[in-house]
Amino acid sequence: MGFKLLSKLLVYLTASIMAIASPLAFSVDSSGEYPTVSEIPVGEVRLYQIADGVWSHIATQSFDGAVYPSNGLIVRDGDELLLIDTAWGAKNTAALLAEIEKQIGLPVTRAVSTHFHDDRVGGVDVLRAAGVATYASPSTRRLAEVEGNEIPTHSLEGLSSSGDAVRFGPVELFYPGAAHSTDNLIVYVPSASVLYGGCAIYELSRTSAGNVADADLAEWPTSIERIQQHYPEAQFVIPGHGLPGGLDLLKHTTNVVKAHTNRSVVE
């Protein structure tokens, strides 16, 4: 069995187990497998329904001669939608809004960016022009300005110390501490036991640490421990890039980060 097929099978099995364990909360999309990078042309966006009122959005972007996937989250909030992270750029984010209108038909009224990198804030200006209120932590807003990236308009308070959590509509926002970046936030959907790890969490097929220019490698494993301790009931975990899975993604990420750190020390 090929690795790609095995990865998709694991996603399907995880979703099936969740649907059985929580039949009222989960209505997993039966329309197909989780979209992969090879299936999404740059400039297009796919939506994948995880649970009743919960979707991931998947886009792709060219970077350094390669094409990478990027995940975000959409959560229903009454007759409105909360968006977590842009679709990595203005063109993708405009396509995301169009796809949401086509498939869901509810307005996106608020959006949260989970850290300051372009795959999370690139497209904020498109959201703002569409009347979406954009939010991020003060740290993310400051770092985005320093980096020359787009800056969300509103500040999220109460997320300055490791372990801080605040309720934001249908989700809980959690600051686990520094990891992929010093400002990275985690998003949890309690009604569906869905954990969105953003770039602080890796997919299972990833074996290298990737972009760690703004990471705190020493603190990252401790931050992941905080996530595990705060959300032990999480059933569906979405990484910032690639295929979702279960809580095993947290341990896998820790292993990859520690291996990278150990290699760096040896070198």
Rank of each mutant, 00 (worst) to 15 (best):
G158W: 05
G43Y: 06
H117S: 00
E233Y: 12
T86N: 03
S181H: 00
E225H: 14
Y188I: 01
T182L: 14
K91I: 14
N149K: 14
P138W: 08
F3W: 07
A94M: 15
T109P: 05
V132E: 02
V187N: 04
P244Y: 06
S208D: 13
W55E: 01
I58H: 12
W220T: 02
G242H: 05
E101N: 14
G210T: 04
A136F: 02
P41G: 13
P221G: 10
F236V: 12
Y48N: 11
G158T: 05
L250I: 07
Y202I: 15
V266W: 12
V75S: 03
S161D: 13
I74V: 09
D52T: 11
G89D: 02
E80K: 08
L6D: 13
V237M: 02
M18Q: 15
Q103R: 14
G163T: 06
W55S: 01
I227Q: 05
R142G: 11
V212I: 10
W55V: 02
A144S: 10
D77M: 05
V266G: 13
S264I: 12
S223I: 04
A59N: 10
Y175S: 01
H180Y: 07
Y12D: 14
P41N: 10
I20N: 13
T114E: 00
E157N: 13
S113Q: 05
V37T: 13
T114G: 00
S27V: 14
S70T: 06
I74C: 04
I104T: 03
D118L: 07
T109M: 11
Y175Q: 01
T253S: 06
L83D: 01
L159T: 02
G2D: 14
D119K: 00
E150H: 04
F63P: 06
L243F: 13
E225R: 13
H115A: 01
H117R: 01
N211L: 11
L47R: 04
S22N: 11
S208Y: 10
D125L: 06
E44K: 11
K4V: 06
A90K: 09
S30Y: 12
P23K: 11
T254Y: 15
G131I: 06
W55M: 02
L5T: 15
G245H: 03
A15H: 15
L127P: 04
V257Y: 03
A259L: 09
V194E: 01
E157Y: 11
G53Q: 10
A165W: 14
G148W: 04
Q103P: 06
L9E: 15
S155T: 14
G177I: 02
P35T: 07
G72I: 01
T114K: 04
G240C: 02
K8P: 05
V171P: 02
A144L: 10
A234I: 09
V42F: 08
A213L: 12
R141I: 12
Y188G: 01
H154F: 13
S162P: 15
T14M: 08
L5W: 14
P239Y: 01
D248L: 07
A59K: 05
E150Y: 03
